[in-house]
Design a protein around this nucleic acid. Sequence first.
DNA 1: ACGCAATGTTACGGAGCTGTGAAATCACAC
DNA 2: GTGTGATTTCACAGCTCCGTAACATTGCGT
Lengths: 222, 222
Amino acid sequence: MRRVLLIEDNLDLAFGLRTSLEIEGYEVLHAETGMAGLVMAGGSAPELVVLDLMLPELNGYEVLKRLRAAEVSAPVLILTAKGEEADKVQGFRLGADDYVVKPVGVLEFLARVEALLRRTRPDAKGELYRFGQVEIDSERRSVTVCGADVELSPLEFDLLHALARRRGGLVSRAELLREVWGYRAEVESRTVDTHIAKLRTKIDRGTESRIVTLRKKGYRLK
Amino acid sequence: MRRVLLIEDNLDLAFGLRTSLEIEGYEVLHAETGMAGLVMAGGSAPELVVLDLMLPELNGYEVLKRLRAAEVSAPVLILTAKGEEADKVQGFRLGADDYVVKPVGVLEFLARVEALLRRTRPDAKGELYRFGQVEIDSERRSVTVCGADVELSPLEFDLLHALARRRGGLVSRAELLREVWGYRAEVESRTVDTHIAKLRTKIDRGTESRIVTLRKKGYRLK
DNA sequence: ACGCAATGTTACGGAGCTGTGAAATCACAC
DNA sequence: GTGTGATTTCACAGCTCCGTAACATTGCGT
C-alpha cells in the first residue's frame, strides 16, 4: 500500500482529502503542523507528500526546504490557495513536483497524486534488477551472484534492494535508515556500515566492491 | 542537453515556447500535427513531450494513447485550453504527467518542465553539467573527464559543483566559502586556493586549466 | 626591471570517517 | 530455559581528507 503524508492544518479539508485518498487505497498520515509533518516524514518514509503552504508556525516553503535538506526525496504536491505565478515558481524552485491551487476537484487531485506516484514506482511486483553478475528478484526476495544463490538475511536483502532501486545514484545513510529501518537516526550508530560490510562479503566475490563509498555522503551501487 | 518534443499546431505559441525552452538550454523538436509528433517521438527519444490537445487530424488524447502504446515512456505535459476537470482526469488517465491550462505564464511553464525532468533521470542521472570534456553528475556525485571517471573528495566535488552551477560566471572566494564551507567570517584563508589547485590537477589533464583565476576577484569555470 | 601583493604548489599533522571483528542484545522457535 | 541466528553496538585500526603553513611563482603598478 502506498503511503501519503498530508500536511494540512484545515481539519475539514484534511478530512475530505484523507477520505478520498483512503478510498483510493492509499495509507494516509496526517500532520497538522509543519513541524509534525517533518517528524513524520523523517520517521515513516512516505512515498508522496501533500503540502499546504499556509501553515501555523512553520510555513510550507520552509517545510519543503527542510524536507529536501533532510534528504526526503519523495515527490511533493503543493496544495494551496496561493495562486500567483511567483508562488508557484518558488514552490517548484524549492523542489516541489506539482502545484495545485485550491479549490480543486477531487478527481483532478487524485489524478495528479496518481500521476506523481506512477513515476516513482521503480519496484513493481516481481521486478528484476540486474547489474554485472548480481541479480535481485524482489518478489522472491532472492539474490544470485554468477548464477549461484546467495543467502541474505531479511535486513541485508532490504538494504541491497534499497540501493538497487536507485542504482547509480547516491543513497545517504539517513535515507537508508528511513527506507530500510524505518526510523530516524537519533544517535549515530554504525549499523548501516556494518551491514554494508556484510553485504559486500556476500555480493562481491573477491572482486572490487560494487558498493561504492562516498565519504561523508553515503553509498552508491555500481 | 535535454531534448523536448513540442507537439503544437498554433505556430505563434509554438514559437514562443520553443524560444523560452531554448533559452533555458533545451534542445527543442517541433511537430505541428499529431502524426508528425508520433514519428518524431519514435525516432528521436525525447526526454519530455509537451502536447497540445486540440490538434488537426489526430487529437491529443489519441496521440498520448499511441505514445504510450509505442512504449514512449518520457513524461508528457499536456498544454491546452480545455480546462474542464473531466478533460484533466482523462489526460492523466491516459498517462500524462502534468496538465496545464492555457494561458499560462512562461515561468510557471518552465518550472513545470524542469520539475518533470528532474524526476526522470534517464540513467539514474540528476542534473548534468558539461564543460568541454568535463561532465558533472550531481545525483551520482561523479565527475568524468574525457569519459574517464575522476575521483574527487567530497569537498572537491562541492567546489567544482559550485563553480559549475554558475556556468562561466565569476565566483568570488567569499561566495565559495559560503556555498561550500558555510563559513560566515571572511577571515583571510588560503584554503580555497589550495583546493582549487587540487581540483586543477585532477580536472585538467595536462591541458590549459579550465578553472580561470580572476585576480583579486575569484574563479571562473570555462 | 623591480617590488609587492596575490596566487600556485607542496608537505604535513590532526581530525574525523569508515571498515571490520567481536561482544552484547534481541527475536523467536522448540 | 535454551539455542540459534539476526541485529545492534562497541572498540579500534587504518586511512582519507582538510586546513594551515611555508615556500615558489606570477602578475601588476611604477
